[in-house]
Simulated assay, not measured.
Amino acid sequence: MLNCKQTSLLVSQSLDRRLTWRERMAVRIHLWICVYCRRFTQQLKLIRQQMSRWQQQEITRTDITLPQVARDRITKRLDTEA
């Protein structure tokens, strides 16, 4: 049987790779017993979901502009360094 540390590692890895049948069964058994690891799993999934939504919003945002003062400062710095 897995302990919490092993389970949390496998849950985290499951977001990036497919676990083996044995690993999946061991995680399921542990999650069935441990409320804390179930919460951790839910939190990880929520974080991943929210990050994905945030990335999509950032890609589609077009209202982000650099203030003119900052543009002038960058231009000035580039002119002096060139």
Score class of each variant (00 low, 15 high):
30 H>Y: 10
27 V>G: 00
31 L>V: 02
29 I>Q: 12
53 R>P: 06
12 S>K: 12
26 A>D: 15
28 R>F: 07
21 W>C: 05
51 M>T: 08
29 I>T: 14
70 A>E: 00
63 D>Y: 01
22 R>V: 14
18 R>L: 07
35 V>P: 05
31 L>C: 05
56 Q>E: 15
22 R>E: 15
49 Q>K: 14
51 M>F: 10
63 D>K: 01
64 I>L: 08
17 R>Q: 11
18 R>D: 15
42 Q>M: 11
34 C>I: 00
32 W>A: 14
39 R>G: 10
23 E>H: 00
13 Q>K: 10
43 Q>H: 14
10 L>R: 03
17 R>F: 05
32 W>P: 02
60 T>R: 12
35 V>G: 11
28 R>G: 14
10 L>P: 05
66 L>G: 00
52 S>C: 10
20 T>R: 04
44 L>Y: 04
26 A>V: 07
53 R>C: 10
43 Q>L: 13
63 D>E: 10
33 I>L: 03
45 K>Q: 12
10 L>I: 06
66 L>Y: 02
37 C>Y: 11
25 M>R: 13
9 L>M: 14
56 Q>M: 09
50 Q>F: 08
26 A>C: 09
45 K>E: 12
28 R>C: 13
56 Q>G: 01
38 R>G: 08
71 R>I: 07
68 Q>N: 03
49 Q>V: 07
15 L>S: 02
38 R>D: 04
44 L>F: 07
48 R>S: 13
71 R>G: 01
62 T>I: 07
41 T>V: 08
35 V>M: 09
56 Q>T: 05
45 K>D: 13
68 Q>L: 13
12 S>I: 02
71 R>M: 11
19 L>Y: 04
61 R>G: 00
29 I>W: 12
38 R>F: 03
47 I>N: 08
15 L>D: 01
71 R>E: 06
39 R>Q: 15
53 R>M: 06
23 E>F: 00
13 Q>H: 07
36 Y>G: 07
20 T>Q: 06
13 Q>A: 11
71 R>W: 06
32 W>Q: 09
10 L>K: 09
38 R>T: 05
71 R>A: 03
49 Q>G: 06
50 Q>E: 13
62 T>M: 06
10 L>A: 10
30 H>S: 03
21 W>F: 08
54 W>F: 12
27 V>Y: 01
29 I>H: 11
20 T>A: 03
36 Y>C: 04
9 L>E: 15
26 A>H: 04
21 W>D: 11
52 S>E: 14
23 E>Q: 11
26 A>S: 11
50 Q>V: 14
41 T>D: 13
38 R>C: 08
67 P>N: 09
45 K>T: 10
24 R>S: 08
66 L>I: 11
19 L>W: 06
24 R>Y: 02
13 Q>E: 12
60 T>D: 11
26 A>K: 02
61 R>H: 02
32 W>I: 08
71 R>P: 02
44 L>T: 09
36 Y>H: 09
